[in-house]
Design a protein around this nucleic acid. Structure first.
Length: 173
DNA sequence: CCCTGATTCGC
DNA sequence: GCGAATCAGG
């Protein structure tokens, strides 16, 4: 995957919004979080709060021989054919809503979400992502429905969105 | 163990 | 320039 102007643009945007490298990587698709971080550095826009202390590294020389890892699956981060722009409401609820009359739309920023299967409630099974798309009161409402595995009610992507903010908050950056 | 960003360095 | 491996830390 090469860094097209578009992708770089998205990267900058999301990074500026404060998304984590892995989230950005997930949304761009085809790249690892390391790639994102590396790119961010090269773009010299890494200045986003000192997360870690002044590291002084000078260990390991290079890639050592991994001891035949039996099932060390290298996950290419699943298939993400297309990315669809949807006005997600995921994290908004946590931002206080001023009593001020704000009837118009709040851009917040488009959040790119992976393909959803748009399932109805009755179609959900124990392994389908139960992440809601849209307003539950709306006709348009649906569930993500992608494979959720057994680690939770959401697919890998939505698990991040659902749980990560909490841990992020916990660290109180 | 999960995650975060930072750095190094072979490619 | 790119990004995996690695580190250091929450």
């Amino acid at each position: 995957m090469n860094w097209t102007d578009e992708r770089v643009e998205t990267l900058k945007k999301l990074w500026a919004e404060g998304l984590s490298a892995s989230q950005i990587a997930a949304q761009l698709g085809g790249v690892s979080r390391n790639a994102v971080i590396g790119k961010v550095h090269r773009l010299k826009l890494s200045s986003r709060g000192r997360a870690t202390s002044p590291r002084t590294r000078q260990k390991k020389a290079a890639t050592a021989a991994p001891t035949t890892t039996t099932t060390t699956t290298r996950r290419p981060r699943a298939t993400r054919p297309t990315t669809v722009s949807i006005g997600a409401t995921a994290l908004q609820a946590q931002f206080d809503q001023e009593p001020v009359a704000q009837t118009y739309i709040r851009p917040v920023s488009d959040v790119v979400v992976p393909i959803s299967r748009k399932l109805e409630l009755v179609q959900l099974t124990e392994t389908t992502c139960k992440w809601p798309n849209g307003d539950p009161l709306s006709e348009e409402f649906s569930f993500c429905g992608n494979e959720a595995g057994e680690s939770g009610p959401y697919c890998a992507y939505h698990s991040r969105i659902a749980y990560q903010p909490a841990s992020e908050r916990r660290r109180a950056r």
